[in-house]
Design a binder for these strands. Sequence first.
DNA 1: TAGTGGTCTAGACCACTCA
DNA 2: GAGTGGTCTAGACCACTAT
Lengths: 230, 230
Amino acid sequence: MPGTLTWQWIAAEARRRVAVRQWPPGSRIPDEAQLAAEFGCARATVNRALRELAAAGLLVRRRRAGSFVAELPVRKATFEIQVIRQEIAARGLRPGYRLLEAASLPVPAPVRDLLGLAPGTPFRHLRALHLADDRPFCLEDRWLNPATPGLEGVDFAAVSANEWLVRNRPFSSGTIAFFALAADPGLAALLDCRPGEALFAVERATFAGADPITAVRLTYGPGHRVTAPI
Amino acid sequence: MPGTLTWQWIAAEARRRVAVRQWPPGSRIPDEAQLAAEFGCARATVNRALRELAAAGLLVRRRRAGSFVAELPVRKATFEIQVIRQEIAARGLRPGYRLLEAASLPVPAPVRDLLGLAPGTPFRHLRALHLADDRPFCLEDRWLNPATPGLEGVDFAAVSANEWLVRNRPFSSGTIAFFALAADPGLAALLDCRPGEALFAVERATFAGADPITAVRLTYGPGHRVTAPI
DNA sequence: TAGTGGTCTAGACCACTCA
DNA sequence: GAGTGGTCTAGACCACTAT
């Protein structure tokens, strides 16, 4: 036991005990008070350490029952969702942007379901291409709630909806999905690839409270990968 | 200000102030002591709240400088990486498993780079199919360090390497990547889809400390999506 | 009902880094 | 050098739930 006693040391020690089976999967570990006594620290310090391990999926904690080593730990991978312009810049490329289409249209059924809208609701539809070193990087296909405050007067030929929303309607909740799709001829032309080629895509739906803000599909050019530490 | 004062209330109030531009992007917010005085709570409570918001990407905190509202907040999406058998069961389907191939082979170059190995290193190569209601769900193509403790005597026809590793070498570090690929004829036959079809795939490389444990590619059947709250 | 984790308090010291 | 966040302490009360 260390001179430098922090919650991180305790967390690391607990990880070690799990790894070497001193605390086997499914078993109950000593309670916070016992560990605080063993390590000679305050219970709050142990609490902080164990809370982090529970967030990481390594422990399962239940009031009155105790803390248990997870049987089949659920690992968590956290991906960072940047503004696309930054995503391009982070790869050392020069970002570009071109608005392809802007219109007010009835929302198609899949998007309607995603956002929980009534049939026939008119939404702002935007399609835009993001470029990296003048080559197609990603197609942004977005449905935007026309009631979004501040929306009037925004020129989406100059600022991508992606960036405007992040700056002006931040911190909404929603869902994100990753999947693969085959390029149809239109997509292939825009993204400079062969028709039928396998492309990586992301769909997001975001809300401010219960109000739908936007649904967007981002389809990336061939070979795109998203990575995260685990 | 509430009867129920918790760090979560403070976090919500801070989110609100950011959303309504009371604390605009890039601005410095009051320091912890001031907020504690305003809310009538201990500084530790404010600290807990602001720490969560910083982890969520909403604030940027710097010692001596203060806490700032992020200019372009980086949203984070956390995906749960379950054991494949559980992933299938969670969809209400009956999991199945079939080992296709097990051999000791020199590691191919891309995997070698991923794991940082010397050329010609022999690794255990496994290919297995995961089934959902007897239909192909996902192909597991894995390279496994033969020096992994406890590996001798494991029958990978009975237990998937995926599950054995989670149970026996948990809590390693590594990287994960998501991408799309086109089904080659072999894949198409195994996953019961058309050649050329766009498939979703995941690659993971995991380490115990500096020691490579495994590299795996999971290729999912057509239409697979992974989702997360955001 | 009792034991466990969840949280809050009031205070303290430290580490970092900006001016 | 000084102001800020990062953390620890010792104690307390509460919420939940297994028994």
